[in-house]
Simulated assay, not measured.
Amino acid sequence: MAVVATQMAVDMEAIQEATDLEAAAADHDLAMGDENVEEAEVGEGGESLVPETAILDLDFDADEEVQVIQRCVIEKYYSMRRVKAATLLLEFKRIWQTCADMKFKDLEDNMYVITFDAEGDYQHVVHGGPWQLRGEVLIVAPVDGTVPLMEIPVDAMPIWIHIDKVPPMLQNDQIGRALGSFLGRVLEVDAMANGQVGAYLRVRVEISLRQPLQDEVAIRIKGKLTTYKVQYERLPNLCFHCGLVGHGKTECLKEQQGAKSRGLDARLRCSPVRKADRRDGVIRADSAARRKLMLPFGAALSSNRSHASSRRMSQEQQSADEIVGEVELSNKVNELSVHDEGVHDDECTESPPPNHKGADK
């Protein structure tokens, strides 16, 4: 048995040595192949034999060489359903309320290129929104012709948000932009002018559809942390489980995988603010009040006292005039009554008309 074991050990060493020699030979051949390739890429004079990429030089100042792209957008319909392009185009015309014609090109995955004949329609579609179709979000991005169509980002949506119960002293443009930056790219802050405040701070942001929606933000003032609820105007269909726009809870892959819910609900939505619904304005002061504001404090106080005194005298004079008027009216009524009684007595004392029958007799 010892001899057999020794023979097996010798055989295993021989097999391992042969394997190492084969690996070394393969590495040598691979290295020689790389050297041959390098030698093949370089000619005898040292010049490269690999063909260079062809380059076309363009001068964009030459209008005849460049196609001008105008009033063109790329659109993506975030829906799990595939809809025919002709059907979608009619729906687009309805929700956009366009006045002129528009042309479309079907790309892929519910994406389309649309060209408008009217500048007004183009501006309305690009700067309006957020657009929705059958409850699903409709993203529109302008096309300038310098970027490939499939590389134009169509994964962000402009939307107005309400940051609820922000203290009046923090309702300004600077705080609105700082808080809005936590949610997306800030486009506009609806901060009230002239020191006016409201129940919430309204900010327009561009939110990413690849990130879940946030339902609150926080401010720390002198070590005290306060959170504020966030609501969204015209919010399309979204998943309350994961917080993403573009699918519902029943279609959520994270829920199917057992991921923890973010606990969102319908309180994430709020009614849009329309200009006709605003209840703010300015009540103008009269000219007399404006003149008093221009006087020093003592003069204004004296003016107020003299104005109050003159007003009191005017009221007393008016009361006296009313009393005199009532007395005069009462006297006139008495005179008329006495006159009527005298006329009545005269009529009663007149002699009766002659009896013609007695006269004839």
Rank of each mutant, 00 (worst) to 15 (best):
I221N: 08
K105R: 13
E188R: 14
A24N: 10
A300W: 05
A300Q: 15
Y77M: 03
T19I: 10
D57W: 14
H339S: 13
I207A: 02
A54M: 09
D34Q: 11
I139Q: 00
V37Y: 11
K260F: 05
T227K: 15
V197P: 00
L301S: 13
D27I: 06
E136Y: 11
W131F: 04
R185G: 06
Q317N: 12
R94P: 01
R210W: 04
Q318N: 11
A18E: 14
S351R: 12
E216W: 09
V66F: 12
E255Q: 15
D286N: 15
Y200G: 00
V189H: 02
I159D: 00
I283W: 09
D215H: 15
E188I: 02
L49M: 15
L244S: 00
I161C: 06
G176D: 02
S302W: 10
L49F: 07
P148C: 04
L187S: 04
Q317E: 10
C239P: 01
I55M: 08
A86D: 10
V197C: 09
A14R: 13
P51V: 05
G120E: 14
V126K: 02
G243Y: 04
A359N: 09
E52K: 14
L201H: 03
S287F: 08
L268E: 04
E108Y: 13
A178V: 14
E38V: 05
D34M: 13
I175W: 06
V50E: 07
R290W: 06
A9E: 13
P296F: 03
G46V: 02
P354Q: 05
V327M: 13
R311C: 06
A320N: 09
D121K: 05
N194V: 09
T6Q: 12
R274T: 06
E216R: 15
N334S: 12
S306F: 11
K76S: 01
L244M: 12
I139R: 00
C99E: 13
M12R: 14
P354R: 08
S306C: 09
K103T: 11
R274W: 13
R81W: 07
A276F: 05
F60M: 11
L149Q: 02
A2R: 11
R202V: 01
D117H: 09
K93F: 07
A31V: 04
D265W: 07
Y112C: 01
A40V: 08
D117F: 06
E13M: 12
C348T: 06
G342F: 06
H339T: 07
Q257R: 14
D59W: 11
A156H: 13
G198K: 05
N355F: 02
F116K: 02
V126A: 01
T98D: 01
A141V: 02
D346M: 11
Q257F: 10
T53I: 08
A85F: 03
K222F: 05
V4F: 08
S208C: 03
R94H: 10
L264D: 00
Q16Y: 07
D340A: 15
A276E: 15
N331I: 14
A156C: 10
I15D: 09
M192L: 15
M111T: 12
W131R: 03
A25Y: 06
F240L: 07
R305S: 05
I161A: 03
G176R: 05
G184W: 08
